[in-house]
C-alpha cells in the first residue's frame, strides 16, 4: 500500500521536475513545479513529517510558486511562450547531470544498498513538531541560526524590494 502511494508521489515529483526543465511554456513549467512540490509534500507525509508537509505546501506552493508565476508573467509576453527552451550546450548539461546521478547512485548503493527492505525503522518521538519548535528556540540548540535566519529573511525582503523598485530618477 505505502509502496503504491510512494510510487504515486514519486512519479508526481519526478514527472513534475522533468516537465519543469523541459517544457517550453514557462507557465506550464511553473505549474509542473507546483506538481513536483506537491509530490514532495506527499513524500513528507509518508515520512511522517506532517509539519514539513504543511510548510512545504504553504511556503513552496503558496508563496514561492506564485511568486515565480508572477515573475514569469511580468517578464514574458503572455501568449508567446514557445521559444527555444534550451541553450546550445544542453547535451553537455545532460551528460554532466547523468554523470552526477550515476555518481550519487553509486555512493548511495555503497552505504544503503538498494535491494534491502526497510526493517526495524526507529519509532518517532512523541510530537516531532513540538520537538522542532522547542529545538528552534532552545539556547543550547538552534536559537542562533533561527535568529540569523530571521535576519536573512528581513535582509532578503529589503534587498528585493530595493532591487525590484522602479527607479524614477533616471
Amino acid at each position: 500500500m505505502t509502496y503504491v502511494v510512494f510510487g504515486l508521489f514519486g512519479i508526481l515529483t519526478l514527472g513534475g521536475g522533468i516537465l519543469v526543465v523541459t517544457s517550453r511554456n514557462l507557465v506550464r513549467a511553473a505549474a509542473s513545479l507546483v506538481l513536483s512540490f506537491f509530490g514532495i509534500a506527499g513524500l513528507y507525509v509518508l515520512l511522517e513529517a506532517g509539519f514539513m508537509a504543511a510548510a512545504q505546501i504553504l511556503i513552496y506552493i503558496g508563496a514561492i510558486a506564485i511568486l515565480i508565476i508572477f515573475a514569469v508573467m511580468l517578464t514574458q509576453r503572455v501568449a508567446a511562450g514557445n521559444r527555444v527552451a534550451m541553450n546550445s550546450q544542453w547535451p553537455w548539461a545532460l551528460l554532466v547531470s547523468a554523470l552526477t546521478f550515476a555518481l550519487l547512485v553509486y555512493i548511495i548503493n555503497i552505504v544503503w544498498p538498494l535491494g534491502i527492505r526497510a526493517e526495524n525503522v526507529p519509532v518517532l518521538a512523541a510530537d516531532p513538531t513540538r520537538g522542532l519548535g522547542m529545538a528552534l528556540v532552545d539556547w543550547g540548540q538552534y536559537v542562533l541560526p533561527f535568529e540569523v535566519a530571521s535576519i536573512l529573511l528581513l535582509g532578503a525582503m529589503v534587498g528585493s524590494i530595493f532591487i525590484a523598485r522602479e527607479q524614477h530618477d533616471d
Partner: peptide, 18 residues
Amino acid sequence: DLEIGALYFVAVSSFGTL
C-alpha cells in the same frame, strides 16, 4: 485531529490562490 491543524488550514487555503 491533526497535530498541525492550524498550519494545515493555512496550507490548503493557499491552493485557492493557485
